[in-house]
Design a binder for these strands. Structure first.
Lengths: 261, 261
DNA sequence: CGTTTGCTTGAAGTAGGTCAATGTGAGTGG
DNA sequence: CCACTCACATTGACCTACTTCAAGCAAACG
């Protein structure tokens, strides 16, 4: 399979199964537009009619929940290449806000493309269900950390999860990676005040657990942290063995689907 | 459509779209078994190979996360009629435990049934994606409450959400409903100590906000609570308008369901 | 440059946790 | 029938991990 597809969704989904040419061209066909979005700009606003799914071609985005007292919370971070909007596809209106965390580019896969996707390319339908399921597992881990860890644990866990996902996406490979969030935003993500986040970070630096060169961080005691948090990397393996066979049949060697990362 | 299908999954999914006879009989065919399970028995253990999805025909179940220090946390409550296992379908191994909260009956829909479901009944595939998406929204709300509310808010929110879901399932209709959880378990669900849960509950009773007749509760100031928590009922509307048309064509009066934008 | 946005640090207060003891009803065996 | 568990609810006294408030800086930016 060629490496250079113009479609973001193709390259994203190819991480999980090797797509047939039919599947690739169908997706690429549906996805003509690229919308650049500036940092801070809304992608989805609360109450918006659901518009299908999107791929974040570049840049970072976040899902925020705002409460009337002005506080807001970060529920999900989208990294470059990830599929956005799968969580809202089942409801007619969005209940959370999505906004760009950095400048970036969004590729919408229009709502009208979903019906033919499920009808004509059933394996892609299964793939969307599976991607949504991985999202849900990650969210469970996050909720679990919010509900049961102390402040240091939450912060460690969030950083570890971020690092791990960046590694899967081949964006940051070692223990050093970018965190394009202010301390206020980190606080919103882990459920702490920015000032306590600050104190924890300084404590981590002082104890030699991490280095900070904004906007980069380096986790010096990652193994130790992963033990502390009982961190398990849930992003590596997608199980595709239950998928239906690809339509279009002459799947150039598609019997075993999984593609090495 | 007839009311009495032997299949649990049929009756569950019929809440969202009216299934064609083809769809119904396919599902019913796949789902022959009923497994009774006693309270406290495991349904899925951590590390189990994913076995497809299941419908909880009767009884309640919970998803738990255990940590090595012996604490565990309740991440999700399954009510009678709900689909379990959608979150784990994308991974090869389960990362959380599922156990019966009360006696009940489980109907497995085997893994092998999923491929033909997506291939031959694309609308059902879309439906599974949508159900997973609603699950994810609910989980986001839960995570949001864990991360941003004070103890009283978390507890109120959890009770409101439970009530609301029971109402959708037609199990409890008013402000009075069953809560088959000990105070320890409630604490595990909302991220608080059982003893603080106790103090809050007693405070609620004393202030006339609720009544407790174990295992029933009655929320006397529900409207007020829903305002406090900015509670929105996210379980009512599934958007099915993007679904592909049903296969089998002669959809007895269900044509209105599948219309692309 | 002045303004804003974000980082840093200290002092004080409190929500909620921990520890410990007592009470209570539902089994269960005698 | 009582006695003995056992699991759960209840309540108080104490403690600390976090928040709130307040102030001073540094860096980015018009």
């Amino acid at each position: 399979m060629s490496e250079e597809y113009q479609s973001c969704l193709v390259s994203r989904l190819s991480r999980f199964v090797s797509l047939t040419d039919h599947e690739c061209s169908f997706i690429a066909d549906m996805e003509k537009d690229e919308h650049p979005r500036k940092k801070g700009r809304p992608v989805v606003s609360v109450g918006d009619k659901t518009e299908g799914i999107m791929v974040l071609k570049s840049g970072w985005a976040v899902v925020k929940a705002d409460s009337s007292d002005g506080r807001s919370q970060i529920l999900r971070v989208y990294l470059p290449g990830e599929v956005m909007g799968l969580a809202e596809i089942g409801s007619s209106h969005a209940s959370h806000r999505v906004m760009m965390q950095t400048d970036g580019v969004i590729c919408p896969f229009p709502r009208g493309g979903l019906a033919p996707l499920y009808s004509d390319y059933p394996r892609l339908g299964a793939l969307l269900t599976a991607v949504g399921s991985l999202d849900q597992i990650a969210l469970r881990h996050h909720a679990s950390s919010l509900g049961s860890m102390d402040a240091a644990g939450k912060l460690k866990f969030w950083l570890l999860q971020l690092r791990s996902r960046l590694e899967v996406a081949n964006i940051g490979l070692g223990n050093r990676f970018q965190v394009p969030f202010s301390q206020v935003e980190v606080g919103q993500a882990v459920g702490l005040t920015s000032i306590y986040v600050n104190k924890l970070l300084r404590r981590f630096v002082e104890s030699g657990d991490m280095e900070i060169e904004r906007p980069y961080v380096r986790l010096l005691k990652r193994d130790e942290w992963e033990k502390d948090c009982e961190f398990v990397n849930a992003f590596v393996d997608m199980d595709t063995s239950w998928f239906p066979p690809a339509i279009g049949a002459e799947t150039t060697g598609s019997a075993d689907l999984a593609k090495p990362a």
